[in-house]
Structures are given as C-alpha cells and as structure tokens.
C-alpha cells in the first residue's frame, strides 16, 4: 500500500468504517511508515478533540416553538403514546385509540406493562417534571452543581444532600462523558441528576429512591420529543432523558444497570 492510498483509508480506519482486510493493510503500512504514523496519531487526536468538545448547537426555543406550532396538534389522549409503539404496531395503535382509556394507560397496555390507574396521573406528572428539569438544565449555568468528569468527585458530592447515594458510573470508554452532578426536583422531591454527554447531546439521569409501583423492567417513552428510559433496581428508580437516539439511551441504560448490579 502506498502513502497516497493510506492517507485516505486511515480516516476510514479511525472511523471504524474499514473492513478487516483493508484495516490490516493500512495498519501494516502505518507500522512501517513514520509519516503516516504521525498522521494517524494527529487525526485520532483531532477526532477525540472534536468528540470531547460540544460542537453542536441547540435549536433556539423560538424555532422549536414555531415548528411545534406548525405540526397539527395531536389528540391529547394519544399524545404520549410512545413512538416505538406507533412505529411497531400501527394497527394496534388504531385499536387503542378506540379505548380512550387515557394515554398513559394505553401506552402501558400497549407495551405490556400494567400499572394501577391511580398511578397514571402521578406518572405523567413525573414525566412532565423530568422534561422540565431536562430543559432547565440545558440553559446556561444550570447543568451541573458539581462539574466533574471524575465519578469519585461527583458521587460524594451528594452525601448529606439526598437520602440515597446515587451510583455514578464512568462510561467514558463507551462514549458517554461524565459532566457532573446536580440536585434537582421531580414530583416535589429532591433527586440526584447525573449528567452525561454523548457527542453534542446532554443526557440527564435522575436517580431517586424506588417507590412501591416501580417495576424492574426498563420502559422507553418519547415525551415532547425527548427519549426517556425508565427503570428500577437496587432500591432506586432511574429516569434517563435526552435527545439522543432511543438505541443510544438504551445502551447507556443497560450499561448503568449492569454497573449498578455489579455494585458501582
């Protein structure tokens, strides 16, 4: 392989887009070519710098408002039916509409999760609070009370501020940068907010003591355009919210679940 070929392919290598055969060829060339080795090192650094910096822009609230206003208002009872349900089972969704039991219950039934009807209002209140807290956190200066990428700094900060010790998991290797922690309020109760970032996207993970209605299984929802993943375990309830994809939020959730089970 020549330097000219390697010059282009090494980017594909760094981006994980190269098949195994070509990857071996590029690696072999780089191993024997000091100039290309410098390239690989510098371009890797640049990629790391780019992914570490928040290069994205948040859409102005006014723009979001104008777009939301342009979309015909949804029927209120179905407005929070999760997108996953809608996409996976359109026919069932139409059926559910007929029941008109209330969106939360429909969503719960559609995903096979049943919880008590009196809990539904409170659940909705919690989701609303979560979205509000997430939006608030995105405003300048509201993201963290304790800004640190070190879990050993973030975790002790909550001591004495909360009745629970929230697990703080380091997921930097998985592409989730720990930004810090914050005290927030959901449903009128203080909760821990652990803040992560992936690429330009902020993820708030709220941790509170588990309540009686919490079930272990993870639930996905889309609320006001944000993806939400909720689960419970080890006496705690967790609610992660972000505008990253549901699959990425799932990845974060499963990794934190695993770490908590392992005693993080």
């Amino acid at each position: 392989m020549t330097c000219d070929e390697a010059t282009v392919l090494l980017h594909a290598l760094l981006d994980g887009e190269l098949d195994a055969g070509h990857a071996r060829e590029v690696e072999a060339h780089v191993a024997n070519c000091p100039r290309c080795a410098v390239d690989v090192r510098q371009f890797r650094q640049m990629r790391q710098a780019m992914s570490a910096a928040a290069l994205g822009f948040a859409a102005p609230a006014a723009l979001r408002g104008r777009i939301e206003a342009a979309i015909p208002a949804p029927a209120t009872l179905t407005s929070i039916l999760p997108a996953s349900v809608a996409a996976a089972a359109p026919s069932r969704r139409v059926l559910l509409k007929g029941f008109a039991l209330g969106a939360a219950l429909s969503a719960a039934a559609a995903t096979g999760i049943v919880f008590l009807m009196q809990g539904a209002d409170q659940e909705q209140q919690i989701l609303d609070d979560v979205v509000s807290a997430h939006l608030r956190s995105l405003q300048a200066g509201h993201l963290t009370d304790v800004p640190s990428s070190d879990r050993h700094t973030v975790k002790p900060w909550f001591n004495g501020r909360l009745a629970v010790a929230p697990p703080v998991v380091d997921l930097a290797a998985q592409g989730f940068t720990l930004l810090g922690g914050r005290l927030d309020y959901i449903d009128g109760k203080p909760v821990a907010a652990i803040v992560y970032r992936r690429r330009a996207h902020v993820i708030n993970l709220f941790v509170a003591p588990a309540t009686g209605v919490d079930r272990g299984g993870a639930r996905h929802e889309t609320v006001q355009g944000f993806n939400v993943r909720r689960w419970a375990g080890q006496g705690l309830r967790f609610i992660a919210i972000s505008d990253i994809g549901a699959d990425e939020l799932e990845e974060l959730g499963t990794r934190i679940e695993a770490a908590v089970r392992a005693g993080a």
Binding site: G56, F57, A73, P74, A86, H201, D243
Partner: peptide, 22 residues
C-alpha cells in the same frame, strides 16, 4: 391534518431538531 400522522411525525422528527439545526 391527519392527527395520527402528525403525532408520529412529532415523535420521530422533533427529537432530532438540535442535530438538524446544528
């Protein structure tokens, strides 16, 4: 004007507003 379609669009497209804006 189909509210179902609008809702599906809202759920699918709005989460990506920041990225589209970026």
């Amino acid at each position: 004007d189909d509210p179902e379609r609008a809702r599906r669009f809202r759920d699918a497209a709005l989460p990506h507003l920041d990225e589209v804006y970026t």
